[in-house]
C-alpha cells in the first residue's frame, strides 16, 4: 500500500533494517499504552512516520478498502443473515404473545392439562425461545464469524498502526 512507498521515499537510507512488520508489531493494540482520552498528538508523535494519522486520507482509505473487501462483506453477510431474521422472529413472537394476552385472554385461558393452560405454555415458550436463540447466536458467532473477524481486525490494524479516532 502507499504507506510503504511513502516510507521508502522518505527514508531510503534505512534499507533492509526497516521491516514494515516491526512497526505493526510494536504497535499491537493490546500493548499500546495509549492516552486515556483523545490525545492523538502524543500518540501520533510516538508512532512511526509511515502509519497514517487518524482521520487522514490514508487512514480513511484503509477502512474503505477493508469495507469493500470480500472477507469483510462475508463477515457482515453472515452476521446480518443471522441477526435480522432472528430479531424479526422473536419480536413478532413476543408481540403476538403480549397482544394475545391483552386482547384475547379467553384464548390464552384454554385448558391444556392439569393447572396448565395455553397462557402458561406460551409464557414458558418465551423463556425457552430466549434461551435457545441465545445459544444459537453464540454458536453461530463462534463458528461462523469470530475467526474471520479477528483476521480482518489484525490486518486492518497493521495497515492503520492500530490508531484510534
Amino acid at each position: 500500500m502507499d504507506k510503504h512507498d511513502g516510507r521508502t521515499a522518505a527514508e531510503p537510507e534505512v534499507g533492509p533494517l526497516d521491516d514494515p512488520w516491526s512497526d505493526a508489531l510494536a504497535l499491537r493494540w493490546d500493548e499500546l499504552d495509549y492516552p486515556t482520552d483523545y490525545g492523538y498528538e502524543t500518540h501520533a508523535a510516538s508512532a512511526a512516520a509511515p502509519v497514517p494519522k487518524p482521520r487522514s486520507a490514508e487512514h480513511d482509505e484503509v477502512y474503505l478498502a477493508v469495507q469493500r473487501s470480500a472477507a469483510f462483506q462475508e463477515v457482515r453477510r453472515r452476521y446480518r443473515g443471522f441477526v435480522i431474521p432472528a430479531t424479526v422472529l422473536f419480536l413478532v413472537w413476543y408481540l403476538a404473545y403480549v397482544i394475545a394476552a391483552t386482547a384475547a385472554p379467553h384464548l390464552m385461558a384454554l385448558h391444556v392439562i392439569g393447572a396448565v393452560n395455553v397462557a402458561m405454555l406460551a409464557g414458558l415458550g418465551q423463556f425457552i425461545t430466549t434461551f435457545f436463540l441465545t445459544w444459537a447466536y453464540a454458536r453461530h458467532a463462534r463458528l461462523r464469524r469470530d475467526n474471520a473477524a479477528l483476521d480482518i481486525r489484525w490486518e486492518t490494524q497493521e495497515l492503520t498502526g492500530g490508531n484510534l479516532r
Binding site: 477502512y63 452476521y79 473477524a149 480482518i152 486492518t156 484510534l164 479516532r165
Partner: peptide, 19 residues
C-alpha cells in the same frame, strides 16, 4: 460521510481499532 461509516462498520463487526 462514507469513510467514517466504513470505519464504524468495520470496527463494529471486527473490533479493528477498538478502545
Amino acid at each position: 460521510d462514507a469513510a467514517r461509516h466504513a470505519e464504524t462498520e468495520v470496527r463494529a463487526l471486527t473490533g479493528a481499532g477498538a478502545a
